[in-house]
Design a protein around this nucleic acid. Structure first.
Lengths: 216, 216
DNA sequence: GTCCATGCCCCTCAAATGGGGGATGGCGCG
DNA sequence: CGCGCCATCCCCCATTTGAGGGGCATGGAC
């Protein structure tokens, strides 16, 4: 049965067997979903991929580690078409790689798992139109939403955190003072402690720290 | 077969049928996973839930909209035990609710779907130990990682964006001037334009805007 | 051509800020 | 009981910043 028109799918990986593995997985998912035949286009390098950008793909699976370029640059280029769903496929799970990839607009981040079933599952979710992150990556994302919390090692006092939060919203000393019902001198004293403890020396840097700690 | 020891599960919802629906769904998942019997504890209000916090639960499903309190405060309290997995269960999908819930430490955000299968599925993922977000919520999260991009409607000039980026890193006027090889006066002129266009009036606010735009 | 936005430069002035100092109470801990 | 930490308040001073003013060259839009 043909549920949908044939999908155009781009697969980028410089390692031939890895590429084949991905393609097999995609085909398995397609047959499981009972979709029409899909057109799978392969690219074995960054440059090969970049010339294919404008071919009107519906899905793309991009290996991040390519010898001649960075996978997330491909993702960014592909995502100028908003309707395409793009997933990174990689062994890398370090935070910088993940953040760069998601910033590039990826809809999925698939860890190359030992068990193909897990990969199949994630591919299936993506092709069903859902964002699809491997659990470890999803956990990493969730952390970004949680307020910074290492009370054990956080040198700031409660009051200082309070001040940090307000200054981090863009309030000036006077306004913070009004908000907390204390003197503006005191606010600036707390600020001084914060500067010293966080090793910064300007409002802008404080605002950045506040963001990092999700003290919005 | 008993895969694991009996799990302790907390279910909070003020509407009786909704609670029952959730419990049925959880039971369905448990039997599907072939786990041991689970102990499900119900709470019909915020206050009821709060007295149960320390009972050593393994999972919790919390309705966000309670007459006598906010669900995410329950979540925050529960998450002082790091091993518990907590999901919000709600019809609300507005950004503030989502952000507050994730900031409180939720591991899941389940939209009360019309189709029970979808809810079952999300519950199953959570009980398998994975973060579990309804697709619409996951999409919302992903957006937060993408750089601000409305170049068409972004009033800032290239130069201003450049200045915004550097000031957003915490540099002061003089340092930005050195970096860009222009006068510090000029930097402050650009800053003035930025203030006007973005409707802000301090370094801290500029830093915040820079973060929003991911001009890191 | 005029007009206007942009990028660049300069000046001034009041307010805010960053970096010192010192001082008072309260609170916990050895 | 001191001692340290915290929170609060105060003063001083150099620098930075926010907010005005004015000018000039360029390059595209009209």
């Amino acid at each position: 049965m043909t549920g949908k028109p044939a999908a155009r799918i781009l697969v980028v990986d410089d390692i031939r067997p890895a590429r084949q593995l991905l393609i097999d997985a995609i085909n398995a998912v397609i047959s499981r979903l009972g979709q029409a035949e899909a057109t799978i286009v392969e690219a074995a390098s960054f440059t090969e991929a970049m010339v294919l950008i404008d071919q009107g793909f519906d899905f793309a699976f991009i290996d991040l580690h390519l010898p001649d370029g960075r996978g997330w640059d491909i993702i960014r280029s592909l995502k100028k078409y908003p309707d395409i769903l793009v997933a990174a496929v990689t062994v890398m799970d370090d935070r910088p790689s993940v953040e760069a990839t998601l910033a590039a607009g990826a809809d999925g981040y698939l860890i190359k798992d030992a068990e193909p079933e897990l990969l199949h599952f994630r591919i299936e979710r993506l092709m069903a139109g859902e964002p699809s992150l491997s659990p470890a990556i999803a956990r990493m994302m969730l952390e970004r939403f949680r307020p910074f919390q290492h009370p054990d090692q956080d040198p700031l006092t409660d009051r200082e955190r309070e001040v940090l939060s307000l200054v981090g919203r863009g309030l000036r000393a006077r306004e913070v003072a009004d908000q907390l019902q204390i003197s503006s001198h005191t606010v600036r004293d707390h600020l001084k402690s914060i500067y010293r403890k966080l090793d910064v020396s300007s409002r802008a840097e404080v605002a950045i720290e506040a963001q990092k700690r999700n003290l919005t």
